[in-house]
């Protein structure tokens, strides 16, 4: 989308600073580009090491495994851009999938409209987080650590020892996970739709730009008359909605649904977000970046399984990915500030 060049001739002595800033914008904006390069390199590495990594089937497996992580990564990204965290994603998936699918079980003929059940429950969980962080003024870590255990507890209480088997759910549930539309698995389509919608919301809607603004400089929000509390609340509610959708996908794909589902999913989501170039300091990063981060982690995971690496390798990779991505992010931000300062001095000294 080419922006129209600046209209009208610029006065002679006014410095045209556009090119100088291009480098600055480049460095911070398309971090997602850097991650995709890393993803491609990773793919090449694994296809070299593991013989059947690069087969179409395996790529499809990665896509299937990664699809749900992409939805959850988008949810976490929306929150992290406002300089907050959400540690309750795993428990929200458990609660939303169990209660949601139990509703589906009780009304089998209601058809796919009931996808809204887990999505609604996820939205409510997100709203609760939003109220605690935005209006209760709780630090996001403590609030979501608390709701993590509350939602998980509620899931177990509701399940009360029971489980929902794939067999007693209407067939349309499983079809959503396994069917293909024009050859592409629906999971993949849903995930890409979520990425597109999240990017549109963050890029095109006022609330989206305000999410970036709050994350970038919370004090300035007062002068702009932005209602910071409402923005953070909306961010958590949207994240809850996406997590609810992920809960449905999780349930559709698993052969049976139990309350101890998706344990530790929030750590993987945070890893995906951070690897995907969303800065933990808030204000920058895109949904697409988070999605690419998620696919990167799924590829990493799949590659390790093919190489027969054991359980600890997966956990080590995830932890290392977070630390490395956060450190790289810090160095990049610092280097960017230095580059911009140097450009400024050159312009004015």
């Amino acid at each position: 989308m080419k922006r129209r060049s600046t209209p009208g001739a610029l006065q002679a002595e006014s410095l045209v600073v556009a090119p100088l800033n291009r480098a600055g914008v480049g460095l911070l904006r398309n971090r997602a580009l850097g991650v995709s390069v890393f993803l491609v390199l990773l793919g090449l590495l694994f296809s070299g090491l593991a013989p059947n990594f690069a087969t179409l089937g395996n790529v499809n497996t990665i896509a299937l495994n990664g699809a749900i992580l992409v939805v959850v990564a988008c949810a976490e990204a929306i929150v992290v851009i406002t300089r907050n965290y959400d540690l309750s994603i795993g428990s929200t998936v458990a609660l939303a999938s169990y209660v949601g699918l139990d509703i589906v079980r009780h009304f089998p003929h209601a058809g796919p409209i009931l996808i809204l059940a887990p999505v609604a429950i996820g939205t409510i969980c997100g709203a609760i987080n939003g109220v605690l962080v935005a209006y209760g003024r709780l630090p996001s870590v403590v609030a979501t650590l608390g709701t993590m255990s509350v939602f998980r507890g509620l899931a177990f209480l509701y399940a009360n020892g029971g489980q929902i088997n794939g067999s007693d759910l209407p067939p349309w549930v499983e079809r959503t996970a396994t069917s293909h539309i024009f050859g592409i698995s629906t999971l993949l389509l849903v995930a890409s739709a979520v990425v597109v919608l999240a990017s549109l919301m963050l890029g095109k809607l006022r609330i989206g730009r305000q999410i970036y603004a709050i994350g970038s400089n919370p004090e300035a929000a007062v002068f702009y008359g932005l209602n910071a509390r409402r923005v953070v609340f909306t961010a958590y509610t949207m994240a809850g909605m996406l997590t609810g959708l992920a809960a449905f996908l999780f349930a559709a794909r698993a052969s049976w649904i139990v309350p101890y589902l998706a344990q530790g999913l929030e750590l993987t989501a945070l890893a995906a977000v951070v690897v995907g170039g969303v800065s933990v300091l808030g204000g920058s990063g895109t949904a697409l970046g988070a999605a690419i981060g998620a696919v990167t982690l799924a590829t990493l995971d799949n590659g390790l399984v093919l190489l027969g690496a054991s359980e600890f390798a997966r956990e080590l990779m995830q932890g290392a990915a977070i630390v490395v991505a956060v450190v790289v992010d810090a160095l990049l931000q610092r280097r960017l500030r230095m580059v911009l300062k140097m450009m400024r001095d050159r312009r004015f000294s």
Binding site: T6, L10, L20
Partner: peptide
């Protein structure tokens, strides 16, 4: 467009897509 107009009107010599972090 409107932003470019305003900046040109103010002779600010700023590109509408310049990042604020890089400004003096």
């Amino acid at each position: 467009d409107r932003s470019a107009e305003l900046l040109c009107d103010l002779e600010a010599g700023l590109s509408p897509t310049a990042m604020v972090a890089g400004l003096s």
